[in-house]
Amino acid sequence: MSLIRTVEISKTFGANEVMRKVSMTAEQGEVIAVIGPSGAGKSTLLRALCGLETITDGEIYIDDELLEKRSEGREVEKINSERRKEMLLRLGMVFQRFNLFPHKTARENIMLAPINVKKMSTKEAEAKANALLDRVGLSDKADEYPSRLSGGQQQRVAIARALAMEPEVMLFDEPTSALDPELVGEVLTVMSDLAKSGTSMIVVTHEMGFAREAANKVIFMCDGELAEEAPPSEFFSNPKNPRARQFLRSIL
């Protein structure tokens, strides 16, 4: 059984096809690094998976159940919207720009969804938030508002907030790209710990060290296409796709 499977998904904005026939799978416990040049469609892929962007063509399956099937923008198969919502809850998303709620403290940020979506009691949600804050090393910042936290701390809270919904797979869209260089490490540490504990993850990243060390699989995207898919050892030592080779040369 695959956690996520896409079959030739495409996305067009107007006349601009930004993602073309991407087929991929994510298995339970797998850590996938998605890399590629800017504008390759990496964010579009993640956003399509978590429902922020509607694909134009193709099929998306979550746990082998159809989430979405479209052809030329039209829904081919009607999916019950409640069911769809339930399925999307299995994906957690972490954004490049954190997107913490500025009017809520760190702890309240984490508690909001469990209370309002899962109808968890305040007490239970608070205990959960405290445990998660501890896990990302921010117990002492529970009552701080996001504006009083560093970028790295904000991103760790954002990770805890997504984890609070107990997703089956965590999606990260360049989680360290908006951070000052000295703050990248603390976020990557939290992510590596997550990977080690068996959390399934899809991570769009420019951190090649992280991709090499934490990922089981690298997906290279270029011009909206999935150009190469390989284990990191293979990909980094011997990329087959010429554009991947060029990309690696340009960044290493």
Binding site: C50, G51, L52, K85, L88, L89, L91, G92, M93, F95, R97, N99, L100, F101, L112, A113, N116, V117, K118, A158, R161, A162, M165
Partner: peptide, 13 residues
């Protein structure tokens, strides 16, 4: 910021 609505939606709100 649009990111606020997006974060809310991905959390299931």
């Amino acid at each position: 910021d649009k990111g606020q609505m997006e974060a809310s939606r991905t959390l299931g709100l």
